[in-house]
Amino acid sequence: MSNTPTLVGQQSDSLREAFGIAIAKVADNDPQIIVLDADVAGGTGAHNFRSSHPDRFVQCGIAEQNMVSVAAGMAHSGFKPFVTTFAVFMLRGLEQIRLSVAYSNKNVKLIASHPGLDVGPDGASAQCLEDIACMRSLPGMVVLSPCDALEVEAATKALANYDGPAYMRTGRSPCPSVYVSEPEFVIGKGKVLNSGDDITLISCGVTTHRALYAAKALEEIGISTRVIHMPSIKPIDKELIWQASVETKAIISCEDHNIYGGLGSAVAEVLSERPNAPLTRLGVNDVIGCSGEPDELAAKYGIDADGIFKSAKSVYEELLSHNDK
């Protein structure tokens, strides 16, 4: 399989740059694509599009609420607008996303760079740990969080071909590659990146490479670990989750987001329909972040490879001790 995940961990582009390069490429063959920016094109990757397609780059200034509704108007006129800004500032237009985009069913794509602790030293004000929860609750909104540059490119193509409102998280920091070549991307589908039958890690975004490292460490101590990467948080791949709940003994979700409302909550909702395996949710535990490098922050909040390893190990050992009683 050409897109077998690799743990070589070769440093690649940040997900934001990957998006910017991808949308510029996709737009070459799709004249309806428009990119809107709120004076952060240098940060979101949209500068790539600004250079290649200046005539279809709409500068909105630092005014996100207007930008979101303007995009709805452009979608109404037949364009495919991609709204780009940092994740926290996207939330500034949340109510506009709700009414002008989601309730009005306008074909607007919302691309948020700088989500989660991955933002790093800028600190809590810029680290958006609530966006997945907000977007997931909007009727009809697709929510994506791809894990590396290659998958961002595939997801960008999928979004350009999808007719309806959607939100995609990219990322700020350079990110190790998970895939060796561009994977197939299907909205609503997850992927088993590592097979195993003791426990399952379910992750998304920049946490997936960490989950893969954790799985490797777990296997070294004899815990067979399945890794499901879930880039499509809404709609979510229920079958893959149910299958894991039957075939493995415990499920641990891992995400760079508050444990309330994000991937872990989405997985919990699915498991509650057919409870089999217990779920442990790893993420930021309902606190705001702080300054630090992304890897340091992931470690501090227990969502680096070692944190995931330790939590998964203790979940599994707890399970075994229960079974012994």
């Binding site: 709409v58 609420q65 207007n66 303007v70 709805a72 108007g73 452009m74 109404h76 607008p81």
Partner: peptide, 8 residues
């Protein structure tokens, strides 16, 4: 704002 987007 939506009207503005349509006008643009």
């Amino acid at each position: 704002s939506v009207a503005t987007g349509i006008a643009k």
